[in-house]
Amino acid sequence: MAENAHTSSGHDDGHHGHHIIPLGVLLKVFGALIFLTILTVVLGLWERDGTIHLGALSVPVALGIAGVKATLVAMFFMALKYDTRVNALAFSLSIVFLVVFFVFTFLDTGFRDTFNEWPDTPIDERELQELRLQERNEALQPAFEAQPLVLPGDTALIRTP
């Protein structure tokens, strides 16, 4: 009975078939993580400079990249890929709570204009928008004025008693 109580690996009790991840795999994952980090920063800089226009997509893209990185860390650095399914299940259940947090917070930040539009945009963004609007109007003004609404010949259309 005592011999069957232990696994055949001969390791300390508590570990079953401990899988050792090869150094090459670890380094490749590390490389991928570094690449994805650089990608995040570059995309952020491009978005700020105007090279690309992600707009509302910028948050999902950033979260997506972060999700890929987290999955790589979990599967390889935390060795969940080589572990029993139960542990992977426990890990993914905790992701559920993260999703809950994001979804409910988005219910707030995405719908601030439910009753009226005042709370929707921060004041500094509003002022920036108004400034841009003003600048655009000023830029258009010369073109607007270049075309007079009333031409000299039109006065002939006005009857004088």
Binding site: F104, L107, D108, T109, G110, F111, R112, D113, T114, F115, P119
Partner: peptide, 11 residues
């Protein structure tokens, strides 16, 4: 606190 009325209703 300034959170959207929609989320207030859900909560």
């Amino acid at each position: 606190s300034g959170q959207s009325p929609l989320s207030s209703i859900v909560f």
